[in-house]
């Protein structure tokens, strides 16, 4: 049995705004019988661009019904501009959260909203964007990437929870993994701190001085930074370290690990002989 919040249960048992707005001027229909859930959202938007009325019809489980009910409550009284900003996470938050396996119910609500808004603008129903990745549930790469980006998803299981993709025959799992990696690569550069070469060398020197030298000197050894070429850190060992057979091990395991942790994750330490 799913652990639903009281708010989910309450909205399931007493759904708000069930039905169809009679003179609706924005209609969004998403999902299908085959997928196990579907939602039809009807809105009445005033000439001033305010959502005056919102109603829903849902085929689906308790959390799908509650999510649709929550969506209509969130939308009523909002301007179209405000409505555009409503996310699936907001629907889930409104209900005090959803079980992670049921997040796709909030995504369905969000998709219905997007469909209704583009319907209002007179746009033709969206052509399918991208390629189908999950044949079982008809989910495209564009939809999967969007869910990964908007909800910071990092595993196939999470993608399935949010989009249903991969929840059937599982043959698309490798493709989903590739999509996760692709989105992560896109986002990665922006998140990385900029590190100039000079700053990098300075940080390496400081780290060697602070973290590594003391323990090497204890054993009568020492380490000297010779050069930094890209991510290659060239070092020379002195004293006991230079003749110690374990020095290579010391260098890769201790120095490289420490430098990667403190300075830059892709550094490679190489020992140079004189």
């Amino acid at each position: 049995m799913w652990e639903y919040t009281d708010k989910v249960k309450e909205h399931f048992l007493n759904p708000r705004n069930a039905g169809e707005v009679e003179d609706a001027n924005a209609v969004g229909e998403v999902g299908s019988m085959a997928c196990g859930d579907a939602l039809k959202l009807t809105l009445k938007v005033t000439d001033e661009g305010t959502i005056e009325d919102a109603k829903f019809q849902t085929f689906g489980c308790a959390s799908a019904i509650a999510s649709a009910s929550a969506l209509t409550e969130l939308l009523k009284g909002k301007s179209l501009k405000e409505a555009e900003k409503v996310t699936n996470q907001e629907i889930a938050d409104y209900l005090g959260g959803l079980p992670k396996e049921k997040m796709h119910c909030s995504v369905l609500g969000h998709q219905a909203l997007e469909a209704a808004l583009s319907n209002y603008k007179g746009e033709a129903p969206k052509e399918q964007e991208g390629e189908i990745v999950c044949e079982c549930f008809g989910v495209t790469d564009v939809e999967i990437e969007k869910a990964i980006r908007e909800n910071s998803l990092s595993s196939v299981e999470e993608v399935t929870n949010y989009t249903k993709a991969g929840g059937g025959c599982e043959t698309c799992h490798d493709t989903i993994r590739e999509l996760i990696a692709k989105v992560r690569d896109e986002e990665a550069p922006a998140k990385r701190p900029k590190l100039s070469n000079i700053r990098k060398i300075k940080m390496i020197e400081e780290t060697l001085e602070r973290e590594i030298r003391p323990s090497l000197q204890q054993d009568g050894g020492d380490i000297e930074l010779i050069d930094v070429i890209g991510n290659r850190v060239l070092v020379a060992t002195r004293g006991a370290c230079a003749v110690c057979k374990a020095s290579e091990l010391t260098l890769t395991h201790l120095v490289e690990k420490t430098l990667r942790e403190m300075v830059w994750p892709e550094l490679v330490v190489e020992e140079v002989t004189e």
Partner: peptide, 8 residues
């Protein structure tokens, strides 16, 4: 209609 809703 959907089964979980019926059960609940």
């Amino acid at each position: 209609i959907e089964g979980e809703s019926i059960l609940l």
